[in-house]
């Protein structure tokens, strides 16, 4: 019975994959049709032109340099955001007073338009730091909220059990709170990285560092190289999906106790 159910789930899984793949193909066809009807490569180049451009770009060192630099900026912003989120989110989850104190900060950062932050960051920081700062500010409120929620949803009877057995506070934090916030953390990371990745690129477009996906996108745009803009967009989408996939894989590995 169980085997049959697993089989059925597997079938459903492959079936859904086929559907997803068909949707991608359909989108590509739609893109091609739109491109042909637009009548000009200067307005909307088709998938074929874009691929050729992408291949050409991939032959230059500036391509890899920019890719790497943007990735590093994103990772740095993420690492900072995660560190601050843990430092704020854990106490906020444990103590409602602390939570009330930081809530306005979180709400402010969540509601501030990214563009305002960028405009200010351009004044305050060096060009290279702006995208990192933007990434950080986009990601840390999301992560903080999820971490404090996870802490608050930790099963109180587990904590009580640990206290009865006189287990130390640091072990309760490491061995009960941390594992039980993991699902919250993973979903927070997934959302935060999605937003963060895009805002790092926006930050690069506006701050114009020498290298970076956003910087080269901006260059391409000013020379009306539409196919390059789209090629960079594809690269950004692919990397974003790669993050998503990695997070999903990581979740399965880390949360392996889930039946």
């Amino acid at each position: 019975m169980q085997w049959a159910a697993t089989c059925q789930m597997k079938n459903l899984f492959t079936q859904n994959r086929v559907i997803s793949l068909s949707a991608v193909i359909l989108l590509l066809i739609l893109w091609e049709i739109l491109s042909v009807t637009s009548g000009s490569d200067q307005i909307l180049p088709g998938p074929d032109d874009t691929l050729v451009t992408l291949a050409r770009m991939a032959g230059t060192t500036a391509f890899y340099h920019s890719l790497l630099v943007t990735l590093l900026r994103g990772l740095l912003g993420f690492a900072l955001a995660l560190a601050v989120a843990l430092a704020l989110g854990i106490p906020a989850g444990l103590n409602s007073g602390f939570e009330a104190a930081i809530r306005p900060v979180i709400v402010i950062f969540r509601s501030t338009p990214v563009i305002s932050i960028i405009l200010l960051a351009l004044i305050w920081f060096q060009v290279n730091q702006v995208p990192v700062f933007i990434g950080f500010l986009t990601m840390f409120p999301i992560l903080t909220t999820n971490i404090s929620q996870g802490i608050r949803h930790t099963e109180p009877s587990f904590i009580q059990m640990a206290r009865l057995y006189a287990v130390s506070d640091s072990r309760i934090l490491r061995e009960i709170y941390l594992p039980s916030i993991l699902p919250w953390l993973v979903s927070g990371i997934s959302t935060a990285v999605g937003f963060g990745w895009r805002s790092v690129i926006i930050g690069e477009v506006l701050s114009q560092p020498r290298y970076g996906i956003g910087a080269l996108m901006q260059d391409a745009q000013s020379f009306l190289l539409v196919s390059e803009v789209i090629a960079w967009t594809l690269v950004a989408i692919l990397i974003g999906s790669l993050f998503e996939w990695l997070i999903h894989r990581g979740e399965k590995r880390i949360i392996r106790w889930k039946p």
Partner: peptide, 22 residues
Amino acid sequence: SYIFQETRILPWKTVLGNVLFP
């Protein structure tokens, strides 16, 4: 030591890990 009505064993620890916990 306490044995609860609901078991209160930690889902992220193995059988051995749970017994070792305290």
